[in-house]
Amino acid sequence: QQHNLLAALTATQNVELGLRVTGKFSRIDLRKRANAMLEAVGLGEHAEKKPDQMSGGQRQRVAIARALVGEPAMLLADEPTASLDRASGREVVERMQALAKEHGTTILLVTHDNRILDVADRILHLEDGRLSTFTDAVIASTQHLMHTLAESKNRQNLEDVVAGMDEPTFRRMLEDLTRESQQFLQAISRAEDQAYRSMLEQSLRVFTRRVGELLDAERASLFLVDREQQQLVLQVSQDAAQAGTIRIPLASGIAGAAATTGRAVRVADAYADPRFNPEVDRTTNFRTRSVLCLPVHDTSGNVFAVTQLLNRRDGQPFDEIDERRFAEFAGSLGILLESLVGMVAGANAK
């Protein structure tokens, strides 16, 4: 968490140290590259200053410039925002992120600063020597905070406190509790923001496509069951532009059969099966040969979606092995879809 700058050297000279170890550059090149990197971190005007003439945030940026100027394959950053205020810390990590992408450098960053986590491509949580996913850590932390909040309120004997209050004091307490409740609801609402919804939508598209590729199918898609309208809605498709625009009656088609019976359906020749609905083929300009459909159950055990594979690339119909492998993936796709449906429903309710 120290900047480790040499006090007797200027910012430029400190950054040059990151290049001198390579032995590849002349003195002129050292100076040019060092100054260019200082410009990149926003310190071009401070190049001739010594560390004691700069703020903590500026010294931190000099250290980052020195670390990145040699274009390392990986940079280890230990608490790069330590001792910095919120604005300076944000500026430091954003510059690190931009420079790392520009120079193709991987950054392994260790931090306790939750305010900068959004710059990461991947987050792991380490506590008591155990690694966990960031999602697990957030859930555990939220549960702990909610328990602590509830306990702090329960320690107060609310009935006794309220009983002796006059009306103005009671109104103020009620207003305070109302405000806290509103803040809590707003915090929950922020968790269901567009960024997470977008991530779910992208994950569904990418994972559905990849499942199709792994099972050697020409097309993979995911239908959402609309019980109210008695329709299947194409939610995810190889052709993303079609998603949400194609609706077919729930009582028709092979996908409809999987939805209504709750059982997998395999068809070797789609156009020879009376249940096949060729309307989607006409709409998407696609020719279906063989079909494999699986019902997807929600956490209550109800069929709320159908996932579908079309046309094995080797020309053979889908078999039991394909069905078993597809079922292994379908459950995970169903969880993603149920999460997305829940978020959309919550947003619409607001």
Rank of each mutant, 00 (worst) to 15 (best):
101 K>F: 03
169 T>G: 07
175 E>L: 05
244 G>M: 05
287 R>P: 00
240 A>W: 09
283 T>N: 15
155 R>G: 06
185 L>I: 12
307 T>H: 02
333 L>I: 13
77 A>L: 07
159 E>S: 15
338 E>F: 05
168 P>G: 10
310 L>C: 06
286 F>H: 12
40 A>K: 15
136 D>P: 00
69 V>S: 00
152 S>Y: 04
326 F>I: 02
185 L>W: 13
157 N>Y: 03
220 A>F: 03
135 T>I: 06
286 F>W: 12
278 P>E: 10
84 L>K: 02
343 M>C: 08
146 M>Q: 15
188 I>M: 15
45 E>S: 11
341 V>W: 07
92 V>P: 00
76 L>N: 08
293 C>Y: 04
122 R>Q: 10
162 V>N: 05
346 G>W: 08
77 A>M: 06
187 A>N: 13
117 L>Y: 08
272 A>M: 07
97 Q>G: 02
342 G>W: 00
319 D>W: 01
259 A>P: 04
342 G>C: 06
269 D>Y: 09
340 L>C: 01
163 A>E: 12
76 L>W: 04
94 E>P: 04
260 T>Y: 02
194 Q>P: 01
180 E>S: 15
167 E>C: 07
134 F>R: 08
33 R>D: 04
190 R>L: 09
125 H>E: 11
31 R>K: 14
322 D>S: 07
259 A>S: 08
92 V>E: 07
268 A>W: 04
50 K>V: 01
300 S>R: 12
126 L>A: 04
288 T>Q: 05
201 E>W: 06
240 A>I: 13
214 L>H: 13
128 D>T: 11
150 A>T: 09
329 F>M: 07
244 G>Q: 08
55 S>F: 06
37 M>S: 06
131 L>I: 14
121 D>M: 02
290 S>W: 01
328 E>G: 11
243 A>D: 05
151 E>C: 08
232 L>Q: 07
272 A>R: 14
270 A>L: 08
272 A>C: 04
325 R>F: 07
298 D>P: 03
102 E>L: 10
343 M>I: 08
117 L>I: 06
294 L>P: 00
135 T>S: 14
313 R>C: 04
134 F>S: 12
310 L>G: 03
222 L>Q: 06
174 L>C: 11
156 Q>V: 00
114 N>R: 14
283 T>G: 14
7 A>P: 03
326 F>E: 03
240 A>G: 11
194 Q>Y: 11
11 A>E: 04
344 V>Q: 14
30 L>Y: 10
330 A>S: 08
17 L>V: 05
33 R>S: 00
218 E>G: 10
94 E>F: 03
254 I>A: 05
74 M>A: 11
116 I>T: 10
32 K>V: 15
139 I>G: 13
320 E>I: 09
198 S>N: 14
156 Q>P: 03
153 K>I: 01
22 T>C: 06
111 T>W: 06
241 A>E: 14
73 A>Q: 11
252 S>W: 09
54 M>T: 03
108 L>G: 08
139 I>F: 06
36 A>V: 10
31 R>W: 03
258 A>M: 01
174 L>K: 15
279 E>K: 15
11 A>N: 03
99 L>S: 05
46 H>P: 01
129 G>C: 04
231 Q>W: 02
174 L>A: 13
269 D>E: 14
316 Q>R: 12
313 R>K: 12
53 Q>E: 13
313 R>Q: 09
70 G>C: 05
280 V>T: 13
